[in-house]
Amino acid sequence: MEVPPSDASLAARVRAGCAPLWRIPGGLLQGFGAYCLLMAEAFNLPRDLRPSLYARNLATQMVQVGIDSIPIVSLATAFSGGVVVVQAIYQLENPLLPLSIVGTFAEQSILLELGTLVTAFVLCGRVGARIAAELGTMRVKEQIDALEAMGLNSRSFLVVPRVLAGVLMFPVLYVVAATVGMVMGGVVAELSGVLTIQTYWEGARLFFRPYDVFFGLVKSLVFGFVITSIACYTGYNAEGGAEGVGKATTRAAVLGCVWVLFADYACAALLL
C-alpha cells in the first residue's frame, strides 16, 4: 500500500470526514435528479410510437389504477366521512352553534382534504406498490431489457401509460371518495340522532364553493402524478432480484406518502 504524502493527509482526512455528511443529501439529490431525468425521458415521447398500442396500454392501466381501486377507496372514505361527522358532532355540539355546522365541517374537510388525502394514502399502497412491484419484476426478470432490445423506448412505454392513468383516474377516484364520504357522513349524522340528514345537507350547502371541488380535483390530479411517477421510478430502477423488488415496493409506498404530503402543502399554499 502506498502511504499518502503527509501534507495531503489533512485534506484527505477532511474529505473522508465529510463524506458521510454528504452521503444523505447527496443520495437524495442523486435520486431526485434520476427521477426527474426518468420523467423527462419518458415524456419525451418517441415520434414513431403507435397511438393504438399506447391507448390499449393506457386503458389497461386506467382500469388497474382507477376502476379496480374504487372499492378500497370507497371503503376508506366511507369510514373517514363517518368519523369526520362523529367528531364534528362531538366537538361542535354547542347550544350557540347551529347543528348544520356539522354538515359544513364535513363538507369542508371531505371535499378539501380527506377526499384527496385518504384516497392518496390508500392508493400509495394499492397503486404505488403495485406499479413498483410490476416494474421491479420486469426489471429483474430482464423484461425491460427485452423491451429496450426490441427497439422500444421502455421508459415511455412503461411510465407514460401508468402516470397518465394516475393523472386521469385519480380525479375520478376523488369524485368517488368525495361522494361516498359526504353521503356516508350524512348517514352517520342521521344515525347519530343529533341532527337530521336534511340539516346536514343544509350545512354542507351553506358554505359550499364550487372552487372546493376544483381544488380537490387539481389536488387529486397532482397526487395521481406524484404516486404513480414515484412508483415508476422506484420500480424501474429496482435491482437485485426479489429483494430489490421488495425494496422498490416499500420505497414507492413510503416516498409516495411523503411526497403526497409535500404536494398537499404546496397545493394548499398555491391554490387556496
Binding site: E134, M138, K141, E142, Q143, D145, A146, A149
Partner: peptide, 9 residues
C-alpha cells in the same frame, strides 16, 4: 434472454 424475459402480463 437467458430467462426468456417474457412479459408476465
Amino acid at each position: 434472454f437467458q430467462g426468456g424475459a417474457l412479459f408476465d402480463s
